[in-house]
């Protein structure tokens, strides 16, 4: 055990490991906060759809040789998030079908563009890295770390300041509208926050595993706690712990970062499920 801790301290001396831990924790915190809202609004799969949109946008950015991909990926993802959440009620193509359509469409277009126009010598590596995160979180530059930190702080601040409104819109949007609340505006805020989280989380777990980061902590917390506040706090704590644990196991054992974090989330869900079963008896 002391050998493991010794190795861990050696690894923690590397700046990129510290950056990864900080960014990973921030992303886990942000994603879990919104995860509760998304699960309750039955939008669990929106993270998957938007992450595929982000993948498509990254492919466009790569083809256009945009130096800072975030400048293109973030606006496109935000626009798609707004479209998906706003048109859910009245659109001809309803919520789940619209998400599925945009999801696979963006994924296909992204891969097609990368195949046709990419100048990279390692196309499969680029695709794999984007889809599964690979070691992206361990290869962040200082500027990317600061960008992630600033965006994470904004997300947390928005969630904290609009907590009561998000709570109302999440549980009963019709009632919120009836009381004079501008539910559309708050749905828009939720959409923007979701898009920012998705773009950030692509570095941590890749675009295929983002949904797990959003829904597992929320679902685990819901097995044990029943109030919105308790579920949110538990979900945030659990998500941060699993992300930290996943990243530490990954650097120590040499496993892929994204899938190790998701495996930790799954194990936590199993434990909370059993605790929940015990509590109901």
């Amino acid at each position: 055990m002391s050998e493991i801790f010794g190795t861990l301290f050696v690894y923690l001396a590397y700046p990129f490991v510290r950056y990864a831990l900080v960014v990973g924790v921030l992303i886990a915190l942000c994603s879990s906060l919104l995860g509760v809202t998304l699960v309750l609004k039955r939008f669990s799969f929106i993270g998957d759809g938007l992450s595929h949109v982000a993948f498509g946008a990254m492919a466009i950015a790569a083809v256009l040789n945009v130096s800072n991909e975030m400048l293109l990926v973030l606006p496109i993802t935000v626009i798609c998030a707004v479209l998906l959440l706003r048109t859910g009620q009245n659109a001809k193509i309803k919520g789940d079908a619209a998400i599925a359509m945009i999801s696979v469409g963006a994924l296909a277009i992204g891969y097609l563009l990368m195949n046709l126009f990419s100048t990279s010598t390692n196309l499969s590596g680029d695709v794999c890295s984007t889809l599964f995160g690979s070691t992206s979180i361990l290869t962040l530059t200082k500027a990317e770390v600061w960008l992630c930190a600033v965006l994470s702080v904004l997300v947390v601040a928005m969630f904290v300041f609009f907590y009561n409104k998000i709570f109302s819109v999440t549980f009963d949007e019709s009632f919120a509208r009836a009381t004079g609340m501008n539910a559309g505006a708050y749905n828009l805020i939720i959409a923007v926050i979701i898009a920012v989280i998705i773009v950030l989380a692509m570095n941590l777990v890749g675009s295929l595993l983002i949904s797990a980061l959003i829904i597992f902590p929320a679902l685990s917390a819901m097995r044990v706690f029943k109030s919105f506040r308790a579920v949110t706090i538990c979900s945030a704590t659990l998500s941060v712990v699993c992300a930290l644990l996943g990243m530490l196991i990954s650097v120590l054992a040499g496993t892929p970062v994204g899938s190790t974090i998701v495996a930790a989330d799954m194990a936590a869900f199993g434990i909370f499920y059993l605790i929940g079963l015990g509590g109901t008896k």
Binding site: Y11, V17, T135, L138, V251, A253
Partner: peptide, 10 residues
């Protein structure tokens, strides 16, 4: 570890 090596070489 392999994850660390890849990141350091990157």
């Amino acid at each position: 570890s392999s994850t660390m090596v890849y990141s350091e070489v990157y």
